[in-house]
Design a protein around this nucleic acid. Structure first.
Lengths: 232, 232
DNA sequence: ATATGTGAAAAGGTTCACAGCA
DNA sequence: TGCTGTGAACCTTTTCACATAT
């Protein structure tokens, strides 16, 4: 063990474990088994053990994991010991919602600035902040030591905003615009795409409908005593 | 080919291809090679070909794919020939933003109703709709033939809302609340978790910082002529 | 007695590389 | 000639199953 390279799939699950662990700590649970954590996080216990083993040997055989200590270790691994300052670019419906979302503050992030290209919006108060102009990005990023940018602009503006963020020194970007962004190597990029998610659901929904239809047809045929060859 | 079971990973990419294809159609591009589509969607071309081959043999060797026809086929596979009616539950910052998001309408979904548990919000206009009460979910779902529910409530309310949606007959759920939802088999569930995404970025950011630190140290040591063993 | 940590096997996904076809 | 469609190789991720530790 101690390969010093945590698989991406594991990294993506650490926030899930962290959330479950924090809930447990709030309920004064001090020890947790991989089985219990798996249940809480909705995965299987072998996965929990393997994932946690990448962080180190923090469990006790026959006992389980100390909740507080595991929270500490997962936070450390995720780089959440500090609260990262974040800039949100694009103050439309979504940007405004994100800026006002309490979850960020609660989970290790601080909205340090909100920015828009529309001069009419500059100065508008968003919680304790005021909207600043996108042209000031470089100064804003430097001033607040911002490392993470959130893009909530229309798709057409997203790449330019992305380029500006990168030029200003931001090296992690979360993109909500339905557009494919190009970033230089060394910059990490993730995207959240609402319509993609819905379209994936649509696929399964439509498939379910198709299956139901076949079932109905089969049911309708049965009384008429049509022979064999049942669909798998 | 024609295995009649499209891998989940492929399903998740179809919306991406669809978006690129629609953009091409708008630019009056009539034919596309796997190489070009790969470029547009940010994946590699073998993947595009394999993914599309699960839908059928819709390309022409030596030529490429007909854009319009491929759009038709991808839409059909994703079940996007109809506009699915969607209900949004939880009209806070995020729910309001989602309800007003044009992207849904543009991509095969129709916000048919918006719902909240807070009586003070009932009747409030959201675009062309008015907020209805969550107790009326069953009627609303039946009335509009809603198959997809979007949960934008606080985490604490999410499971109850989810149960109510399922009881009302909804069989696909998109969850924005930072909570693990339990659904019966046969109901599809996807989640969008903003802070999880940020935490994954944080991991990479922190790792980058660590690497930079090592680089700095190495650079600082070099002038002092410390010997060998350079970090990979 | 009980639950971790981990090799090994299985499953799933990606990429290569080229035969096959327009 | 040029690009698709796809077996085969490769890599990643998941799951199994058990030796190991308390």
């Amino acid at each position: 063990m101690r390969d010093r390279a945590i698989p991406e799939a594991t990294v993506a699950r650490l926030p899930l474990y962290l959330r479950s662990l924090v809930e447990m700590a709030e309920r004064n649970v001090h020890t947790v088994s991989s089985e219990q954590l798996a249940e809480a996080a909705g995965v299987n216990s072998a996965k929990v053990r393997k994932d946690l083993s990448y962080l180190g040997s923090y469990g006790t055989r026959g006992v389980g994991y100390d909740v507080e200590y595991l929270i500490y270790q997962v936070r450390r691994e995720l780089g959440l010991e500090q609260a990262w300052p974040v800039v949100i670019v694009g103050i439309g419906n979504l940007g405004r919602a994100l800026a006002n979302y309490d979850g960020f503050e609660e989970r290790g992030f601080r909205v340090a600035a909100v920015v828009d290209a529309d001069l009419a919006k500059v100065g508008e108060p968003i919680g304790p902040l005021a909207v600043e102009h996108v042209d000031d990005l470089e100064r804003i990023v430097k001033e607040h030591g911002i490392a993470i940018g959130v893009i909530a602009t229309p798709a057409a503006a997203a790449q330019e905003v992305c380029d500006r963020l990168v030029a200003a020194g931001v090296s992690a970007i979360l993109n909500f615009a339905p557009a494919l962004l190009q970033v230089p190597t060394g910059v990490s990029l993730r995207k959240v795409d609402l319509s993609t998610e819905l379209q994936i659901l649509s696929f399964h929904e439509q498939r379910r409908a198709a299956v139901d239809l076949v079932r109905q047809q089969v049911a309708a045929q049965r009384p008429r005593q049509r022979a064999g060859r049942d669909g798998g």
